[in-house]
Design a protein around this nucleic acid. Sequence first.
DNA 1: GGGGGAACTTAGCAGCAATTAT
DNA 2: ATAATTGCTGCTAAGTTCCCCC
Length: 714
Amino acid sequence: MGREKDAKEDEKAKHKATKLKRLSDSERAGAGGDNIKKSPNPTKATENMDKRKSHKKVKTPKMENVESSSSISESVKQELQDDAFTAKKKGVKRKRIKDDPKEGTSDSANSPTLKKKKKQRHLEEEGDGVAQTKTSKKRTQKMVKKEEEEQAVSKKSKKTKEEIEEARQLKIKKKEEEEQNRWRWWEEEKYEDGVKWKFLEHKGPYFPPEYQPLPDNVHFYYNGKKVKLSLAAEEVAVFFAQMLDHEYTTKKVFRENFFKDWRKEMTHEERSLIQDLDKCDFGEIHAMHKAKTEARKNMSKEEKQALKEANQKIVDEYGYCLLDHHKERIGNFKIEPPGLFRGRGEHPKQGMLKKRIQPEDVIINCSKESRIPAPPAGHHWKEVRHDNTVTWLVSWTENIQGSNKYIMLNANSKLKGEKDWEKYEVARKLKSRVDDIRYQYLQDLKSKQMVTRQRAVALYFIDKLALRAGNEKEEGETADTVGCCSLRVEHITLHEQLDGNECVVEFDFLGKDCIRYYNKVPVIKKVFKSLKLFLENKQPGDELFDRLNTSVLNKHLSSLMPGLTAKVFRTYNASITLQQQLKELTNKSDNVAEKLLSYNRANRAVAILCNHQRAPPKTFEQSMANLQAKIDARKEQLALAKTELKQAKKEAKTKGSSDPKLQALVERKKAAVKRCEEQLLKLEVQATDREENKQIALGTSKLNYLDPRISVAW
DNA sequence: GGGGGAACTTAGCAGCAATTAT
DNA sequence: ATAATTGCTGCTAAGTTCCCCC
């Protein structure tokens, strides 16, 4: 990896901003520490604190690796290759890849673990030629996988080793072919301003199947009486019935919204009859649905295979488009089916009916000279347009929020890849400027102007804690969540002293997706003082940064560095954190398993920083208990093995050590003890890892924030 | 200058496939 | 072979940013 370069840069940066760094290091520590989705219980809190601690070390923002692009591309190449290589072997699929700017070093490390990292998408793009191979590989891999699956399935039935081997070969071949065909768009010139493509052709969206009426033996009951519903009302009833096992259907808001919208679908008679949701009995419909899913699970191999093939056919037909004469995979080619709106958290619109989209609602975007997709028989499109300054192929307006939905390309397409690459490039650029920018906002903390001062504090949070920008939201339209600029007085508590630290800010608010952000962060005095000032004469519901909004903030940022916006800090800090963690956590001597653990730990640090959470898995308690039981069993076994060993030793001694049989026995027992110990250790590590991971979602950061080049380099 | 909307990225979750343990 | 776990993918909601219009 371009360590040397980095190091140099680092040095420079360090000199420049020693102060800053100190600051940031210590400060950054707490970032995003503990959040507990539901109830913040004390135990957790302590755990979290620990995490935070470890974190602190981690986070210092040095930018070691971000180096010059030239080195990058080289490193990239290597990475790519590595990646590809590994990927091929395993046939691993990849998620998206991103490339990042950051690392670039070239050592290339390829540990097998890399596979896990999946970020390849961008990689490809990045470098000039380099990437290509990668991308192609990636792609191919995906396809290959599919193919493999198919093949595997068919072969399994016969399953001879040769056949499997054959299949493997075939796959590899196919992969290679794909690679050959892969569009090396990163080698091509960019289009002029705003133009996203010159030629675009596709088949249009895939519509969900029409509603199938209930069979005659399944009934809906109202107030104990059988009621035959009209088709429209029945369909909506089924949506509800299918969700009966879900918590949603117990929520008041959900039920009310559903009922209101359902009544709109009813005929006059139905509406006058059905006045109370509590009197509705969806039992039979629910049972039917459950039986159906059960039946699907129990399908024979052949049936499943047939289904798969049918799906593949749809993908083949609708899943690709032609963009500038290259075949590209579409990300979501299906129109979203109707159903009940599942907003996150306390969403005021949860349960509302999400209507079925008709071709008449759909706008098609493609080249004038392409083959225009045909609407379903008897229908017409809302509009066909030819706008090559946008990347979508199809769009429609959704009825819940009135927002637009789009069909766009897959993540490893040129259009997405390029953007992703740009994102990491901006983050790299920030690396070289961040010291100045930090210096600037620290200066701004002294400003007499309220706006400037609020802006400085907000930036401090965004940089240090990786908070999101925080746009204003319309009340009543969405759940009440906030980001940095939209924080309210009630979301923070100031502590002059807390847990041995001075000037601690306690955050507690719901962020994107209603994920709770809870963190106690020591801040510098100036920030603390400013916060006190901002809080003066305000009610809990008032805005903390009343003079600030995201557009003011971003305008300022872009004046500091072109392309800089609030979210770049998230990308930047996530990548830097990963890089540092990796550096800190791994030793050369580590074996693969240890390295993997380190990578996961580093990844976890990033996820914590970004507050990526998940609900603890439903089976978590159970599986943890199982694991514990296993550990206990192991322990017993170990004890037993130990006593046996002792006994064998004793016997060997008393009966004469010359007896080879007894000697062998001792050896065997020794080995058994050792094995037991190892297994026990392994289980324990597993338990820790899992516990630590309980509510942290790693995938998002991998997917969206971590520059793949860092991983590759590592 | 700010309101609103279009376009695009980021996010968690459900469900299933792949993998590992039993 | 089966059960349990893990890991992906697809889906689509929920953000950010930019831009236009007044």
